[in-house]
Design a protein around this nucleic acid. Sequence first.
DNA 1: AAGACGAAAGTGGTTGA
DNA 2: TCAACAACTTTCGTCTT
Length: 309
Amino acid sequence: MGDWLAFVKKCPECSGINLFYYKEKGEIICKDCGLVVEDKMVEFDQEWREFDAESAAKKRRAGAPMSYTQFDRGLGTEVGKKADLYALGAKGKNKFFRLRKWQQRISTAIERNLKLALAELKRVSSYLKLPGSVEEEASRIYTMAVQKGLVRGRSMESVVAGAIYAACRRHDVPRTLDELSEASNIDKKEIGRTYRFVTRELGIKILPSNPSDYIARFSTSLRLNPETQTRSVEIIEQAQNVELTSGRGPTGIAAAALYVAALINGEKRTQREVADVAGVTEVTIRNRYKELLEKLDLEKEIKKTKKRI
DNA sequence: AAGACGAAAGTGGTTGA
DNA sequence: TCAACAACTTTCGTCTT
């Protein structure tokens, strides 16, 4: 028997509490009834817990963490062993070789694809200066997409871009489709399409992004004071309370809030400047801006700072 | 002269029959 | 599958600073 890794879980068939994870095949099999619970399963969590450094050292089985940014996750896949052959008859041998050939073809195809794709993924995410956690998540998403055959009929690059976009959203460090498009040389619409497709097929739920998640980044590239930043986050919160935000594009709201906050704090930026970093048009800023003034009673403050200068 | 404003027409995506 | 629809964009003329 090959390498079995203990994996405690309840079996849906015989309701025994001992499933086992067979490393080489990537299957979960119930030791009692033999039910294959999940094929091509990818396990993300560690199933043990660490309470201190000492027990951690005992429980950890691997040196470097298993990383999805490595195309084979650091584990090579080898199907079948020569030693197994002694147990088989002539018929069995043929089958063995046939299966192994197929499996090798499939897995090398997948691995070649992954190797290429993850290189691209690394390139794009370092271009966008994304944190490692996001890159890791994106690799994970892409790997799952490949295993589900979702790349077929789509360019590898666009799926990579879609995976990164999804990962960014999940980690609350959203990038705009425009930025992703610039980094990956893929059409904005194409990225959006594959993003929606992949998240739907993989059942990844993503909450609509919060406008304030964009504030830090936008205001940095606009060289605005921290006070302006906090002010614009406040404005966004107020806007959310009066239902000004639902249905609107979060970047537009962020841009308008930033524009107003800058006015109030006396470090005015033109609509053009804000629009450029936020990736929206001046018109959108104007519309949001108008709504903000109407509902939030900010005009007084703007006039106040105007006088002061 | 640059920036802000707003009207009008066009685009891509969502929704509901 | 199609049409209505909302949000957003593009374009452009006018007003304000």
